[in-house]
């Protein structure tokens, strides 16, 4: 355990060094969020009908996504891991006294936390100061906030578990950019990262709610605004726990199999 913690620490520290990148990233994410809400505002204004999710709830959804982006998107790839697979360096990792899955998991998690820790609060803070309907609403009560916190933690873990599955596919494709683009292209949409899922047509929702991706964004961001009220929220969190288990098992299985193939070939 101590080893994983020190890997984690090192990663977080090196992530903290890039302040220019962080500053720029914050601006980009903020800008992107503002644009998305402006577009949706224009859409909402075009239709007099009541919508399944209010503009204020959608705004909160988008601000949360933009500020916590680093924790929940799959296109954020750990270049070192991908590179070590393609170059075959990974076979050296096998000579070290740790399980590769746990090591990579700790590393990816740290990378995301380091990138995320610097970025989330300035965006949230700024979003709190905006005028309505852009303003970020607070959760309706403490209970919701607590539920959101746990749901968000689970989201982050599921995201890393999904990323591990993605890394395992690099052993087959040998094209990190391809694997990532393939995974991220599908997952971000199905997670509700491009347009909140409640606004999507029925067939998209039917598909999305059968796959694990929605538990990384749709669930926590809707719990926050109270759009998923108390009993439903708990149900969704249970779904998250289930999907976390499933993705952990699958990722470990795929990685073990991929590594098995390497040592047979002699890397």
């Amino acid at each position: 355990m101590k080893g994983y913690i020190s890997v984690f620490r090192l990663r977080v520290l090196s992530g903290l060094q890039y302040r220019t990148a962080a500053g720029a990233g914050i601006l980009t994410n903020f800008f992107w969020g503002a644009i998305s809400i402006m577009v949706l505002e224009a859409f909402y204004a075009s239709s007099g009908l009541a919508q399944p999710i209010s503009l204020e709830e959608t705004a909160a959804y988008i601000w949360l996504r933009q500020s916590l982006l680093m924790l929940v998107v799959l296109w954020l790839r750990d270049g070192e891991i991908a590179q070590s697979i393609v170059t075959g360096q990974v076979s050296y990792e096998l000579t070290r006294p740790y399980t590769l899955y746990s090591y990579w998991f700790a590393k990816s998690l740290a990378y995301r936390l380091a990138a995320g820790a610097l970025r989330f609060w300035p965006i949230l803070l700024a979003a709190r100061l905006l005028p309505a309907p852009y303003r970020l609403q607070l959760p309706p009560d403490t209970m919701t906030a607590v539920l959101f916190f746990w749901s968000m933690t689970l989201s982050m873990l599921i995201t890393v578990a999904l990323a591990m599955i993605m890394y395992a596919t690099i052993f087959t494709t040998m094209t990190p950019a391809g694997s990532v683009a393939l995974f991220a292209g599908i997952s971000d949409f199905l997670a509700g990262g491009i347009v909140p899922l409640p606004l999507m047509p029925a067939w998209v929702q039917a598909l999305a709610y059968r796959l694990p991706f929605y538990t990384t964004q749709d669930v926590p961001f809707r719990i926050y605004s109270g759009h998923l009220p108390y009993p439903l929220a708990l149900e969704s969190i249970m779904a998250q726990v289930m999907w976390l288990g499933a993705t952990l098992v699958l990722g470990q299985f795929l990685l073990t199999r991929a590594l098995g193939r390497i040592s047979v070939q002699g890397g």
Binding site: A42, F43, L182, I186, D188, I194, M200, V204
Partner: peptide, 21 residues
């Protein structure tokens, strides 16, 4: 995939809201 999912998203929004301004 990425631009395609954007397009599906935009189309979905038009299905829901009818038009954009």
């Amino acid at each position: 995939l990425f631009p395609l999912s954007m397009l599906v998203g935009v189309h979905g929004l038009f299905l829901r809201f009818g038009r954009l301004g």
